[in-house]
Simulated assay, not measured.
Amino acid sequence: MPALGFLVYLVVEIAAFTAVVAWLGAIPAILLLIVSSAAGMLLLGSQWRRVGEQFRRASRGEITPGAAVADGALVGLGSLLMFVPGLVTSVVGLLMLLPPTRALFRPVLAALAARRVAKIAAAAPYRPTVIDADIVDGVVVSEWYTDERPKSGTTLELRPAATEQRNQGEPA
């Protein structure tokens, strides 16, 4: 199967490059290949920073994590396609790196991921979890107590001795 995929890749790239050479000429076709690769390489750094910022925003709860993960996957795939030689892979990689066109790829990625997850879930055997444990009845306490010690060293009240003597000497 991988050999068939590689063969399809070669045929598509050769056919596309031949069509561009017939349409524009050899030198413009080579320049188009170089320019598309250079533009993609320039976009890589800024788009990875943007994806990192989306992950930070998702961790703070400002955006949904699904959008950040989808953009991360698309930027990763676009980066990979930029390193694969060929005009078609460079153009598709460039489209995955550009934010406006990346929004067009998101639903396709979500559909592929949903299909893959459904296939994995269907193949996994169901194993119910049985927990054998003792049940302890209890009361939920909603107040919190601390083990703080009293501020003074003693809890007894001491009266000065002079006050007691004055009280004894005075007639009642």
Rank of each mutant, 00 (worst) to 15 (best):
residue 55 F to P: 02
residue 123 A to F: 09
residue 28 P to M: 03
residue 67 A to L: 14
residue 5 G to W: 11
residue 167 N to K: 11
residue 153 G to I: 13
residue 47 Q to M: 14
residue 15 A to D: 10
residue 110 A to K: 06
residue 111 A to H: 10
residue 134 D to P: 08
residue 70 A to T: 15
residue 38 A to H: 11
residue 137 D to R: 06
residue 152 S to D: 13
residue 75 V to N: 00
residue 132 D to R: 05
residue 150 P to V: 08
residue 140 V to A: 07
residue 116 R to M: 09
residue 55 F to K: 01
residue 33 L to F: 14
residue 19 A to W: 12
residue 147 D to P: 02
residue 154 T to H: 06
residue 13 E to A: 05
residue 99 P to F: 12
residue 39 A to S: 08
residue 156 L to A: 15
residue 38 A to W: 14
residue 97 L to W: 11
residue 85 P to V: 13
residue 5 G to C: 03
residue 78 G to S: 08
residue 88 V to R: 02
residue 99 P to K: 08
residue 89 T to H: 04
residue 53 E to N: 03
residue 46 S to H: 06
residue 157 E to Q: 10
residue 109 L to E: 08
residue 11 V to K: 01
residue 99 P to M: 12
residue 163 T to C: 00
residue 56 R to S: 08
residue 73 A to I: 15
residue 92 V to C: 01
residue 28 P to D: 04
residue 147 D to M: 11
residue 154 T to I: 10
residue 141 V to A: 07
residue 82 M to W: 07
residue 15 A to G: 12
residue 20 V to N: 01
residue 113 A to V: 15
residue 159 R to Q: 14
residue 51 V to D: 02
residue 27 I to K: 01
residue 87 L to A: 01
residue 163 T to I: 10
residue 85 P to W: 09
residue 109 L to N: 06
residue 56 R to G: 02
residue 6 F to V: 11
residue 118 A to W: 09
residue 79 S to C: 07
residue 53 E to W: 04
residue 103 A to Q: 11
residue 112 L to P: 03
residue 95 L to P: 04
residue 121 A to Q: 13
residue 19 A to L: 14
residue 10 L to Y: 03
residue 171 P to E: 12
residue 37 S to W: 14
residue 103 A to M: 08
residue 105 F to G: 00
residue 26 A to Q: 07
residue 135 I to W: 10
residue 71 D to W: 06
residue 76 G to H: 09
residue 90 S to L: 06
residue 102 R to Y: 10
residue 165 Q to V: 15
residue 41 M to Q: 10
residue 63 I to Q: 00
residue 79 S to L: 03
residue 105 F to P: 03
residue 13 E to G: 05
residue 16 A to D: 06
residue 146 T to M: 05
residue 127 R to W: 02
residue 91 V to R: 01
residue 43 L to W: 11
residue 56 R to D: 03
residue 122 A to L: 08
residue 58 A to K: 05
residue 77 L to R: 01
residue 120 I to F: 07
residue 156 L to H: 14
residue 77 L to K: 00
residue 54 Q to H: 12
residue 113 A to L: 13
residue 130 V to W: 04
residue 66 G to V: 14
residue 39 A to V: 15
residue 20 V to S: 03
residue 161 A to Y: 08
residue 72 G to D: 01
residue 63 I to F: 05
residue 88 V to P: 01
residue 37 S to G: 12
residue 8 V to N: 00
residue 141 V to H: 07
residue 85 P to L: 11
residue 4 L to Q: 08
residue 139 V to Y: 06
residue 137 D to A: 09
residue 102 R to V: 12
residue 26 A to L: 14
residue 44 L to P: 07
residue 150 P to C: 05
residue 20 V to G: 00
residue 99 P to N: 10
residue 162 A to K: 06
residue 136 V to F: 12
residue 136 V to R: 07
residue 165 Q to T: 15
residue 141 V to C: 00
